[in-house]
Design a protein around this nucleic acid. Sequence first.
DNA 1: ATTCAAATTTTGATTAGTCAAAGTATATGT
DNA 2: ACATATACTTTGACTAATCAAAATTTGAAT
Lengths: 219, 219
Amino acid sequence: MPSSTVENYLKNILIVSLETKSSVVSMGKIAQGLSVTPGTATTMIKNMAADGWISYFPRKGVRLTRKGRKFAMSMLRRHRLLETFLVETLGLDWSEIHVEAEELEHAISEKVLEKLDEFLGRPRTDPHGHPIPTKGGHIYRANSKTLFLCKAGMKVRIDSIIDQESDFLRFARSKKLIPGNEVTILSHEKEADAIILQIGSDNPFSLGSRSSEKILVSL
Amino acid sequence: MPSSTVENYLKNILIVSLETKSSVVSMGKIAQGLSVTPGTATTMIKNMAADGWISYFPRKGVRLTRKGRKFAMSMLRRHRLLETFLVETLGLDWSEIHVEAEELEHAISEKVLEKLDEFLGRPRTDPHGHPIPTKGGHIYRANSKTLFLCKAGMKVRIDSIIDQESDFLRFARSKKLIPGNEVTILSHEKEADAIILQIGSDNPFSLGSRSSEKILVSL
DNA sequence: ATTCAAATTTTGATTAGTCAAAGTATATGT
DNA sequence: ACATATACTTTGACTAATCAAAATTTGAAT
């Protein structure tokens, strides 16, 4: 069994490789994602490679092995099921669940997780709209695009919010930028780096690229 | 904030001092309770004393400081609320919850615990019948005796089961030795080291001192 | 081709928690 | 009062994870 530190490295590598759609993840991304110095990441990664969690390509980066990917998926499953539980059952706020789940995911056993999944009615997505991997380690890939890529006139549905920062999540909710909601793009001016959009009959508002890239949509 | 190791030491010291009703706990008990070598306990205890969790009396033992006791109580609260949740909400078996709670108690925050307490309807006791400390660190002291001290003819109610071993708990349940149930002592022969008892109209059965000391009763 | 900045690796040191084994104190029985 | 078993402490060593700072590699720009 991996230590919680190894669990964190694995989950992080998986998330980055899903986000960037490339199976090889650079050392820089890893060090940054785990908030450790580059040297720490290097030593850790070498140990993990020795234990068969990843393949290590010096000065290139890292790729999850089959075993590593499977475990990383199970971490993601834990995390997202726990987030769902914290919101749905205990009524915690959308913006505070990430940190809580980050701790609990290392402590919950497969057995308890299975019961929790059952209790929650086997949800497909977490409160941020992210798909929850199955027990077998399979993840549903929505073909979402970021809101930033949408053209004026389009009407799309929000799939998920990528950012886990409480501040952004609070802002998102206040604007009704919530999974499931429909958004109309009123205009998208590249030069101004601004998308103007409207949800329902609320007042239109604008988002820059930084923010609109954090929102995945489809349709 | 203490590390999970320190949390474990604190909880253990509290439990032993509640069980033995003496505020000073010996190094031997600590080492045994935490399954570490005596030397490890000594070094750990010295660090904890330096951090103000306990008072250390060399070659005598250890006493929780006010701060240590408060924290230890909060650990006990976490543990017992989690056990309750695992049985009541998720439907895990009585005999398997101890180990699970032991992991989760280090990961759950005060905020989540508070929500959980509310969700469970602020239970007073855990599934083993042990009182759950309040948020303020106060614990309800039942004036229970061990079943071993009961005389023939007495009719008592089971308050709690002390042992956390799955094997014993499975046995206890099979005999209906469960908190709340009424027990009639048919005979208690000191020399034979055997109590014969009956629950409801079930077949009478006997317990030795080892087992009957693990069951707390009152009335 | 050469230089330089950025990314990565190496090196040496630190901390928390642990063990084994050797050393020391204490209490208990004769 | 003394011997000795038992409980406890000390010592030296080890592992996992980390950092700071120095050294190295790579790739891009001049």
